[in-house]
Design a protein around this nucleic acid. Structure first.
Length: 896
RNA sequence: GCGCGAUUAGCUCAGGGGGAGAGCACUACCUUGACACGGUAGGGGUCGCUGGUUCAAAUCCAGCAUCGCGCACCA
């Protein structure tokens, strides 16, 4: 037990507490021996942040939620491990290191592959742990002692095995295809890594002259959004059923491609939509996936006019050397000069951009590696259909299904240097090609020298293994036992934008290699938008730095404020007010704890856990409320309803414990007979509340808990027992709750009267309550027994309650369903004001009553509504009628 | 085009068939020995629109409108 400083300064306690948890070993699965090995383990893998990453709001939210779940499990005694680590993030990291080189006037080619990769490792050494440190600042209770990295040697082994197994199973193949190419990153991208934005572009109508006029027709018109690609055209297609081109098709006409003076065929293909543009499509097999497909069907030449930077090559003749933007301008100008530009229309269309650098993607023909997905997708689809993997909220399962059902092969090769190099070896002598888990030097066939594939694997190829590769698969000692005990993991919490990129692929690869799902629950948290509803991004500059928020509100304030905003919705407009409110809440908790400490000074507690001792109605009430809170927080159905739980916690602590129980305790503590029991109840409720709050606000709760005499033998709240709703259920007490609400009504009424008449809280008032209705007698008795408490809370000069209590002269009158509350005002009372207020109340009540009565006179209602509803309506209406008559009587008897 | 989400107090959002809620903001009063990052009392809403189901709809269903997010794209 120790003193708490007068004011709460988060920054003065957070780092120190974190260090103490770390040193005590609580982040380990054994929680320094406090975990109960007999219970189900709880394992979570963090979505590995990029090594280049700095904490953003998405991380702050996601890791708050994971930490809440992990801390609850740990307090329940489950062997808990939150696996943490970083992702090597191929493109992102390579970009960072290249950027640094550029500043030094170098390119990666100046360094060469080996030195460049070393530079990446150096970079990782220097900056790669930034985000891990930030997680610590948030208070995240990850297993930092076993930090993982997707480029670790053990991880690399897993990658190798996956690649080789799939290669040998024929699931990985090499192909010459149109892929998405980023000319800035100079690498291929998977379909999912391309972001489509709607852009306002143009549709150019170009005249393509026929080689020979047909029946006086000299040209046809094609429409295109990318005129520059015409330099690579090797055909023009129309729909076979399109009447307007029938004659041309039948005549076997060919086209003389302008600017290139190349003769290209006119052909028919079902793909062409006769109603779009002119119904004639220029076909560029090397630069458009659809054209590529048509080219394959019609055996067209593929002319690649772009190099890897999307600069025109010699295949573009005199346009060689231009960028694609310059080429567009030049082509359009040239066509116009030739009189071949018919018209230009505005045209809205989606354009693909690199998800890493936002450069416009170029569909580009190249040799790449692919994973055949269809076969792999089937069990992954089934895993979610069967419920083995369940999404929260459930609707995201549709997104997953749609992707899995329309899955396309996955381009996994990247033309980068930083990453897992593709383990395929080529023999230049005999042409042998093979994949190997170990580096090969000599050809197994001809003993010739082997060359390894130059490309590296997509970063998502490695992160798909995260849940099992981080637990030792496939070669670390004891991995089978590890997975048998701790796999699948319990929950994966992440943002919706990586459901395809990551979540789906983890399911798919885990089912293949570990023959089990990687996790049972997938929690898709809302996306944090700025306060105007825009997505937060670097380019918009509207991001909020979680570390600044921690500085302003404390880690606890930030966490609680974020948790409060979590709903089942897809978005969350970031509301900083909630963080301010949460910091204030933390201060409230702090001060409540200081109050408790202050008032138990000099008291002695029996050894062991402090037990509650319900001696008064208020004691029974607060314990009942605590029991109810604990029950609702432990409901497994609502385990991911963070916002609802946070609100309940705040309501209980602030509005019930602080506003009422602490206030009531002030009176109880002055009575010798109640002093000890009240103190015990204060400590007990505070202790239990701190436990329930700890997962949300780990620092302040720990700090306070270690300062109060809870009597628990555990040295830290982090490993103290989570409140047991079944044990607390013994304290549920509906009658006490009902009686306290009567008292609360009376107190609120007295305060309201004071405010209305400007009477100081310091001036004691005499109050008389007349009880009414069926429970009049017991209510009168309850209130009488609570009179000490009432007197203290309302600062009353006297209090009497009874079924037949008389209204004093000169009293303000308030009528409730079950009470008539008279507050004596000794000449101050303004009866005109009282009458007006009562009349207003009467009006409102009469309207309500009329509505209920109309229900009760409705045959349909009486015969079809649930009996208990009818009964309730009846008693409510009766109560209202009764209250109305009492109001009428009061109005009648009030002096004029 | 297909799918999904949102629309409730000035703002941010809960709620989810049976008497409209919270926080912030606003107004008034209160520096009371836990807390002014506080307390008390107030004001403020025909729950987007139109239909339907139902004894009963803010709540369920359909359509519409507006905003937003995916996916797929016809060059």
């Amino acid at each position: 037990m120790q003193e708490l400083p007068r004011s709460y300064e988060p920054s003065t306690i957070e780092a120190e507490l974190f260090k103490s948890w770390d040193e005590a070993g609580y982040f380990d699965r054994s929680a320094a021996g406090f975990a109960n090995e007999a219970l189900d383990p709880y394992t979570v893998v963090i979505p590995p942040p990029n090594v280049t990453g700095v904490l953003h709001m998405g991380h702050a939210l996601n890791n708050t939620l994971q930490d809440i779940l992990v801390r609850i499990a740990r307090m329940k005694g489950q062997p808990t491990r939150w696996i943490v680590g970083t992702d090597h993030a191929g493109i992102a990291t390579q970009n960072k290191v290249e950027q640094k080189l550029t500043e030094e006037g170098l390119t990666r080619f100046d360094l060469g592959r080996k030195a460049f990769v070393e530079a990446c490792w150096d970079w990782r050494q220097s900056y790669g742990s930034v985000i891990i440190e930030q997680l610590k600042a948030m208070g995240c209770s990850c297993d930092y002692a076993h930090e993982q990295f997707t480029m670790d040697p053990d991880y690399a082994r897993a990658i190798r095995k996956v690649f080789v197994d799939w290669y040998n199973a024929g699931l990985i193949y090499r192909g010459h295809r149109i892929i998405n190419w980023c000319p800035r990153c100079t690498t291929a991208l998977a379909d999912d890594e391309v972001e489509h934005h709607e852009e306002c572009g143009s549709l150019w109508y170009l005249r393509y002259p026929l080689s020979e006029p047909v029946d006086g027709v000299e040209y046809l018109v094609v429409a295109t959004t990318r005129p520059e690609t015409m330099l690579g055209d090797t055909g023009v297609a129309v729909n076979p059923n399109d009447e307007q081109y029938k004659a041309l098709l039948d005549s076997g006409a060919t086209i003389l491609l302008p600017l290139m003076e190349r003769e290209i065929p006119l052909f028919a293909d079902e793909y062409v939509d006769p109603d779009f543009g002119t119904g004639a499509v220029k076909v560029t097999p090397a630069h458009d996936p659809n054209d590529f497909a048509m080219g394959e069907r019609h055996d067209l030449e593929q002319i690649n006019i772009f190099d890897e930077h999307a600069v025109l090559t010699s295949a573009a003749g005199r346009f060689a050397g231009l960028t694609r933007e310059q080429a567009r301008e030049a082509v359009v100008r040239n066509m116009e000069e030739l009189g071949l530009l018919e018209r230009v229309e505005e045209h809205q269309h989606a354009v693909g951009h690199c998800y890493r650098c936002d450069t416009t993607i170029e569909p580009w023909l190249s040799e790449q590696w692919f994973v055949a997905m269809k076969e792999l997708a089937a069990p992954a689809l089934e895993a979610v259909r069967s419920g083995a993997v369940r999404f929260y909220p459930r609707r995201w399962e549709n997104t997953y299904f749609h992707w899995m059902e329309h899955i396309r092969d996955w381009c996994i090769s990247r033309q980068l240097w930083w990453g897992h190099r593709i383990p395929v070896f080529y023999c230049s002598s005999c042409g042998w090609v093979g994949a190997s888990e170990h580096d090969l030097i000599l050809c197994p066939v001809c003993n010739g020298r082997l060359e390894q594939d130059e490309d590296v694997l997509d970063t998502w190829f490695s992160s798909q293994l995260w849940p099992f590769a981080t637990q030792g698969w496939p070669a670390q000692p004891g991995w089978e036992e590890e997975l048998a005990a701790y796999y699948p993991t319990q929950v994966l919490s992440t943002a919706r934008d990586i459901i395809f990129l990551w979540v789906a692929r983890m399911v798919l690869s885990s089912l293949y290699f570990v023959e089990d799902v990687p996790f049972n629950d997938v929690l898709i948290h809302p996306t944090v938008l700025d306060r105007f509803g825009n997505i937060m991004s670097k380019s918009r500059g509207n991001g909020v730095d979680p570390l600044e928020l921690i500085a302003s509100y404390g880690a606890d304030g930030m966490r609680f404020g974020l948790a409060l905003q979590v709903t089942g919705n897809q978005d969350m407009k970031f509301n900083e007010d909630k963080l301010l409110g949460s910091r204030n809440f933390a201060t409230k908790i702090w001060n409540a704890a200081r109050y408790v400490l202050m008032h138990i000074e000099g008291l002695r507690f029996a050894p062991g856990r402090i037990e509650p001792e319900p001696a008064t109605e208020a004691d029974r009430w607060i314990l009942s409320r605590l029991a109810g809170l604990t029950r609702s927080l432990n409901d497994p159905e609502t385990r991911y309803d963070f916002g609802a739980h946070a609100r309940r916690l705040q309501r209980f602590f602030w509005n019930e414990f602080c506003d009422w129980y602490i206030e009531i305790s002030k009176g109880q503590l002055t009575r010798e007979a109640l002093r000890q029991s009240t103190a015990q109840n204060l400590v007990f409720v505070l202790d239990q509340a701190l436990r329930l709050l700890h997962p949300y606000m780990p620092f302040i709760t720990e700090k306070i808990w270690q300062s109060i005499p809870h009597g628990d033998t555990r040295p830290s709240l982090m490993v103290a027992a989570w409140p047991d709703d079944k044990a607390l259920a013994a304290y549920l007490h509906p009658d006490a709750e009902r009686r306290l609400s009567l008292l609360l009504d009376v107190v609120a009424t007295v305060r309201s009267v004071r405010a209305r008449y400007g009477i100081s809280p310091k001036q004691p008032l005499a109050v008389v309550v007349r009880t009414a209705g069926e429970s009049a007698a017991s209510h009168a008795e309850s209130l009488s027994s609570l009179s000490l408490m009432l007197t203290q809370l309302g600062n009353l000069a006297s209090f009497t309650a009874g079924e037949d209590a008389d209204r004093p002269d000169n009293a303000s009158v308030t009528v409730t369903d079950e009470l008539e509350i008279f507050v004596e005002l000794e000449g101050l009372v303004d009866f005109a004001v009282e009458r007006e207020r009562l009349s207003k109340e009467q009006e409102k009540l009469e309207a309500d009553r009329a509505r209920l009565e109309s229900k009760l006179s409705n045959q349909g209602f009486l015969s079809k509504a649930a009996p208990e509803i009818v009964e309730k309506t009846r008693t409510d209406a009766a109560e209202m009628a009764d209250a109305l008559s009492r109001i009428a009587a009061q109005l009648e008897s009030l002096p004029r």
